[in-house]
Design a binder for these strands. Structure first.
Lengths: 343, 343
DNA sequence: TCTCTGGTTTAGAGCGCTCTAGCAGCCTGG
DNA sequence: CCAGGCTGCTAGAGCGCTCTAAACCAGAGA
């Protein structure tokens, strides 16, 4: 039996009794065809179940209208961003090509995969790639770094005002009467340095410089768990701001498992407002990043570069917003919970 | 200034002083060129920084060597599977085209996106799409459903033996002396029915039919949290098997927040052994799915269909494995924790 | 009647690659 | 010396689409 080859432009043209070019015009909704012909061609296309071949289309058009996205398959927050990016891209008439960073597939692999796909620009979510390498990539195609600060002037950046986020967090805690507020940081993760800086500034601003305490953390739940264990060894603070929600949930659950009451004994503030923070059993007070705005700006910037439009500021900074849930409360007037160890 | 056009096959050919066809041969590592020429061409290609154009290559080749993957950006376990799929696909000489299901992008959107990309086959992770629709899709291209049971004989399936997994879970708990073992189910989620069935069978097998208790759950942490709240209202069981790890963590943290000791008061067994279960502060006893094997089989099946090889069994079932961590322990000899309510 | 216009349609040249046929050489054996 | 079989290479026809330039064909105006 003969395989029923997928219908081509030519088949539709033959059926409708017109030229290939005209069918192309109709399919693309391009100007230059009469209403009657349009109707006839469209009917023929439907009848054959014609669908244009993207490969051929891309080859012929100079543009692919494809935006590459590198994201961490592990990060809940990246998932949220991807959702926003899909929406923003389709709004701008672009498609997304996803490339995941997984335990066995690093950022370089992910980027290489996208380069093969001939996407026109690339959006990298919180990349760990060194700035120099990013700059080099920018020479090949427009690159937008999302959710990370990059000094190099060659690279476009869209990010949340991380420092401002920590001002919000610390301010919130200070207004609840907390003084011994610690920060569990993100180490070398994207945004960590900025948030650390914001924490320090805010503590000073509230006259709490003496209580500054930065605990080594990281970006995963396990990093948070480890940091929480550390906290319990010394004299624990009455509140902590944490690098991100993932890490914060690790802190939360570990402290609870250690017998502490959250927020009674310790208040916790996360960062991101990812899905994680919104879970009913986590219900984390956190600094929300404006996902849709970040996504829209990132796509917009990529498109602007592609269109060769002049770009005013290289770095677009989006203000964060504090979302108060149930992991923060007023500082207890009594003596703070004394030091104790886990188990 | 003129834009430096990306080098084409022709440019390399000109530089090396040979024909386009020969360059193509060398680039593809195809037979039919002398070692000396190979070397010369490769040098020319390097010099120009030549990279083949995937679009043109795909158009010209009948094959795209592209496998579409539909996954839920929210599901930690899907992330694990994607990691495995990347590895398996590259081993088989295929590339992956990811298409995410997000809150605003449903499965139909994801599938439609992939069809545009001209992938040769599709791998769907725990799809919710009705069987009839899947069968219809199969008429267009090979479809492998991963991690879900599908009755329709047209659709290829690779999945874990869900029922056996619950036999393992219940058996483990029974051997620890538990009798009142409840099951928090996954509702209409992929695999839920099978796991429910396995639970029932296992309970009967251990003479615990009288203690059967199925609690409505779901596949998210919040579903688990809600189910846990339910549990606390009646006389809580001494152990629960939970549909998946996500749901189980919801159960775990909610019960702990409710003042129960896990595993002292209630033992918990999850399903998947996703990253989530392995977190230090969760450390969940769970039924592990063999991710790499599932991924390899799924890719293998897709490739077999593409190669037109005869396929022995439509459904490939992978045995699960019990991973004992810290959320299960022996049933307490004394009276079970009495009923209490949250808060 | 002829030209001019503007909308409609088409021929045909790519886009950058793959792949089949076929053409030079050279070697072997008759 | 030539038939036959190599290996190494190339010409050229696609793959299915887009897009430019040119042809066509009314109807309007000269």
């Amino acid at each position: 039996m003969s395989v029923p080859r997928r219908p081509r432009l030519e088949d539709v043209a033959a059926l409708a009794g017109v030229s290939r070019a005209l069918v192309s015009i109709v399919i693309r909704d391009a100007p230059g065809a009469s209403a009657a012909t349009r109707e006839r061609v469209r009917r023929a296309a439907d009848q054959l179940g014609y669908r244009p071949d993207t490969r051929a289309r891309m080859l012929s058009r100079s543009r692919t209208r494809l935006l590459g996205v590198v994201f961490g398959v592990q990060h809940a927050f990246h998932g949220d961003l991807v959702d926003g990016l899909y929406a923003a891209a389709s709004g701008a008439g672009y498609d997304l090509a996803l490339s995941a960073v997984t335990p066995r597939r690093d950022e370089d692999d992910a980027v290489a995969g996208l380069l093969q796909d001939r996407c026109e620009a690339m959006i990298l979510l919180g990349p760990r790639t060194p700035a120099a390498q990013l700059a080099q990539l920018t020479a090949r195609l427009p690159v937008v770094v999302l959710a990370r600060h990059v000094r190099d002037r060659a690279v476009d950046v869209v990010r949340t005002d991380d420092a401002a986020g920590l001002h919000l967090a610390v301010g919130h805690l200070a207004s609840l009467g907390h003084r011994r507020i610690a920060h569990i940081d993100g180490g070398r993760a994207a945004g960590a340095a900025e948030r650390r800086r914001g924490y320090r500034e805010a503590m000073r601003h509230h006259g709490l410089a003496a209580h500054e305490q930065i605990v080594g953390g990281g970006l995963t739940e396990d990093d948070g768990a480890a940091a929480a264990a550390d906290l319990l060894h010394g004299q624990p603070p009455t509140a902590v701001t944490v690098f991100n929600d993932r890490c914060a949930t690790g802190v939360l659950h570990t402290l609870r498992a250690g017998g502490l009451d959250i927020p009674g004994d310790i208040s916790i503030v996360g960062f991101d407002d990812s899905r994680l923070a919104q879970l009913s059993h986590v219900d984390l007070t956190t600094v929300a990043q404006d996902v849709d705005r970040l996504a829209t700006l990132a796509v917009g910037r990529a498109v602007a570069r592609l269109d060769g439009k002049p770009v005013d500021r290289r770095e677009l900074v989006v203000p964060p917003r504090l979302v108060v849930r149930t992991t923060t409360t007023e500082a207890q007037p009594g003596a703070p919970t004394t030091s104790r160890t886990l188990l």
